Simulated assay, not measured.
Amino acid sequence: MKIGIVGASFARAAYLPALRHVEGAEVVALASSRIESARSAAEEFGIPAAYDDWQAMLDKHQLDLVLIATPTDLHAPITLAALERGAHVLCEKPTAMDAGEAKGMLDKANALGRVGMIDHELRFNPNRQRVAEMIASGELGDIRHVNIANIGASWANPASRPKGDWWSLAEQGGGRLGANGSHQVDMLRWWLGPVRSVVGQALTVLPDRLDKKTGEAWTATADDLAYFTMEMASGALAQVFMSGVAANNIGNLTQVFGSKGTITLDNDNERLMYAKAGEGFSDITVEDPNAALPGLNKGVWNVSVVAALRELTSAIRGGRGLERGATFEDGLKNQQVLDAVKRSTQSRSWVDLP
């Protein structure tokens, strides 16, 4: 399977180490905005061709699969071009700049019969799969509410980011809502089903920035703090709070409250804890067997990519749709929630979903 990758940073961290453990995968080309980054990654992983122009890469190679890990504003253009050239696509999150772009990606993939996956790799993490199974089986009873907090300090220092950092620019699709909120929305939709209505805010708490090397002043336009509440069609409430401007890193804590029991999952130690109603918590953590594979970078995100890529390549070979993972349709529905949070920021009111 001939694979091309756009975006060197996440490719080095996750895609390329994982693809060494995906049968039949052959990365033939890699593109990055900086040719130095593309060449360095290509040399390290034995990739024959490196580019600083993704369009040139698509023009010069007949690819079966394209992996896209770029700033968000490039997701839709690269996806559409790759699909038109005959490739299937794995696109990073958030899906696109807005639901209109996400729908265009879905419609094009469907029209051409291509497989499209959004890289919400936590769907392939065994602990989160265990939660999904316990909810689906009724073991937790009726889910009444879910709380998720993701608190960090990456944006707390005004001089912590370089000038032009795309993660801090709304015009390139940066911000905590897209970077982390998209994962939380996808996980909650996977666990709890459709979203009925959303209220929340995506805020830029520290817009006045200084370049981390030169001290030059610049302005951040993307959200560094976002929070929202989703009313699910099931009646459950899910609350998500994400901050990049805290003084300390607290990490990510997920709590699921059902009528028959409670679950907590802490990203710092990846321990899954479960308590039946009226009883104490016990450890029900499920270890990921892929974590022991050689050459992978540590962390749940990097490890989970292995199973995601195995499912995607299996679906392509089998001429079938995805049996697991986030489809382009999921990507559209996730994007509708993110768009609703942005509208709610302006209206300061609940926004109903389609």
Rank of each mutant, 00 (worst) to 15 (best):
D59T: 06
A275G: 10
G319N: 14
T95F: 13
L322I: 07
S32P: 04
H145A: 10
G116D: 04
R310S: 04
G244C: 11
N267V: 11
G200M: 05
L312A: 08
L83I: 09
P289C: 00
K342Q: 11
K2H: 14
V205I: 15
A236D: 04
V89D: 03
K276R: 12
E43R: 14
L83V: 07
M57L: 15
T221H: 09
Q255E: 13
L58K: 09
M134Q: 09
V306Y: 02
T262Y: 11
T254M: 14
V185F: 01
D224W: 03
D107K: 05
K342G: 00
A222R: 03
S33D: 04
R320L: 08
G24N: 06
N252R: 13
R196Y: 02
V146S: 07
N252P: 01
N252Y: 12
V351E: 08
D52R: 05
W190P: 03
M242R: 01
G278S: 07
S168L: 14
N157Y: 09
L65M: 11
G215R: 09
I151N: 02
A69C: 14
W191Y: 08
D53K: 02
W155N: 11
A156C: 13
A170P: 00
G193S: 05
G178S: 09
R271L: 13
L322N: 08
G4C: 06
L293R: 02
Q172F: 13
P289E: 00
P207T: 10
L237Q: 11
N269C: 14
F281D: 00
A291L: 02
G181S: 05
G104F: 01
M242L: 12
G318I: 02
K93T: 10
A226G: 11
A96W: 03
V245D: 06
R85T: 08
V341S: 05
I118Y: 01
L19D: 05
D119A: 15
K212A: 10
K103F: 05
A109F: 01
M57D: 03
S234I: 08
L296E: 06
A326R: 02
W350K: 02
E171K: 07
A153I: 00
G164L: 05
G295T: 00
A29R: 06
S234V: 10
A87Y: 03
A159G: 10
L67Q: 07
D288E: 10
S9D: 00
V351W: 01
R189S: 11
T264D: 12
L140E: 03
N127K: 02
G138R: 00
E323A: 13
E36T: 09
N150L: 08
S168I: 03
H75N: 15
R114G: 06
N267L: 14
S197E: 15
T345E: 01
G181F: 03
A226P: 00
V131E: 07
D208W: 07
A159D: 00
D52Y: 05
L265F: 12
R123P: 00
L332F: 06
R144M: 15
E23D: 15
M232K: 05
P94R: 01
H88Q: 06
L312G: 04
G174S: 13
N249I: 09
G261L: 03
L338D: 05
A69R: 10
S344V: 07
E101Q: 15
I47C: 11
V245Y: 06
A307N: 10
A156T: 11
R123H: 13
T262E: 13
T262R: 13
K103P: 04
